[in-house]
Design a protein around this nucleic acid. Structure first.
Lengths: 258, 258
DNA sequence: GGTGGCAGCTCGTAAGGACGAGTGACGTCA
DNA sequence: TGACGTCACTCGTCCTTACGAGCTGCCACC
């Protein structure tokens, strides 16, 4: 390789040199890197070595490769869209999601069954009948996409009349219907970071090396019985979740980090 | 390739065949895949093709490659450790974290400055002086690791005497000290999913293709001024966060998903 | 019997050649 | 003038060959 010999595998040295070039502004965001052939000449290495280096930078999310065009430096990661998942106490506004989403299609409504993942959350066995409602939500400002899924057990749908007829009602209407049916709602939500599945990669238009942030929210009724399950999946590059937490009695802070 | 010709690149066909073998139980979790040489014979392809297929499976997190030993099918992802980030209303218990963590080392205490990320969260400019306290927490049951970082602005440390002397106090002691200093605490927390940086990969002992789940929690005082910033980073494979949400007035559910 | 070294397995890195496929610009032909 | 085909450029896939490095078990030597 041209210049000073550094330790480690050659392709790592090439990757480090390109990384440095990006950091120092030699390759500004949005511009194409030198082509593979040029990198071969420049660093005096073989094509596999160059491609290996490029693969490393790709998996770090630093660059993006477009067939027939070249390798492009990615812009600084856009400040991710914040999705409010918040509640404040006593009468203040209660946001379950960023407001101005647009729906890409009409909601997809289908019948499905509980799985080994969703069953326990709904306190049902496996194979119990559910309504499924899938939505693709888009933030008009940034184009960020969200996959939203609603799973409604038949028993819940029957207990709240509007649901059985039209499960593709807006979320707040569903909450309203459940409240009207006499339920006092609480929610519990788990958040995971994981790599996308193939269908998520295409639906969310995820580039390489992009994790998804995945939440499962269970709405509980008065006796804490699970009523519905909401799933939200978004690109880790485009979305972050935000929670606001209020404590009633500060004395309750014991028993943390023993 | 042996057998029926399927469409698409050869290495994808090989990857698909191995994927199928894993799904069908031919290669159970924990067992080694056939070696590269054997896969070459079996599918009648060259070594780069086999390695390309293996790289694809690796980046999906399906297998794990150990130098000198072989490629191993990963076990089903262990049910991740749930970290409670919860609050319930009015007097009930308030858990800021899973309780029985062990510390790997003594906390590392150092002086640092706000960055373009942490400054705005603490409502400070860039380059303002901070105490930093880093901890590596381990769940004794599963071995799951957590990186915990506490950033304390000097002004906060001065306003609560114990902090200036010993910033490496346990978290609940810090909250207690802040409360004793007259603050009525609230918290806001953001959650992101992203790929690890090199230092996180080693500190959390992350395998390939493992995202991290990263939370930033700001503790606010009586006038909502930011007091301290807590960062928590964990493997997406090992940890999930859990929130419990309670609403005071169900009428406040309007203005969701317009 | 114990211990060290070597052999033979694994994957990691590297070179070099060949061809296919996507893209865009240019020039030619109608 | 307009449309289409060609060509030059990009990256994608695939092959062969070679050697280095981590790991393990066998075997010979002490």
């Amino acid at each position: 390789m041209a210049g000073i010999e550094r330790p480690g595998p050659l392709y790592q040295q090439v990757a480090a040199a390109i990384r440095q070039g990006i950091a120092e502004g030699e390759f500004p965001p949005g511009t194409p890197l030198p082509s593979e052939a040029q990198l071969i000449e420049r660093y005096e290495v073989s094509r596999p070595t160059v491609r290996n280096a490029i693969a490393a930078l790709r998996s770090e999310g630093l660059i993006e490769v477009r067939h027939g065009k070249g390798s492009f430096v990615k812009g600084a990661p856009t400040p991710p869209l914040t999705i409010e998942r918040t509640i404040t106490r006593a009468g203040k506004t209660f946001t379950l999601g960023h407001t101005p989403w647009e729906q890409l299609h009409k909601p997809t409504v289908y019948r499905t069954e509980t799985t080994s993942t969703t069953g326990p959350l709904l306190e049902l066995g496996e194979g119990e009948a559910l309504f499924g409602v899938d939505r693709v939500l888009i933030d008009p400002a940034t184009g960020a996409r969200l996959l939203h899924r609603l799973l409604i057990p038949f028993t819940t749908a029957e207990s709240a009349p509007p649901l059985a007829d039209a499960p593709d009602t807006a979320i707040e209407e569903i909450y309203a219907a459940l409240t009207a049916a006499g339920h006092k709602l609480t929610w519990s939500e788990t958040v995971r970071a994981r790599m996308p599945q193939a269908d998520e990669r295409s639906a969310l238009e995820l580039p390489d090396a992009t994790p998804v942030i995945h939440t499962m929210r269970v709405t509980h009724g008065t006796d804490h019985q699970p009523l519905i399950l909401e799933e939200l999946r978004a690109s880790g590059h485009q979305a972050q979740l935000s929670y606001r937490i209020t404590a009633e009695s500060p004395r309750a802070l014991r028993a943390v980090h023993s």
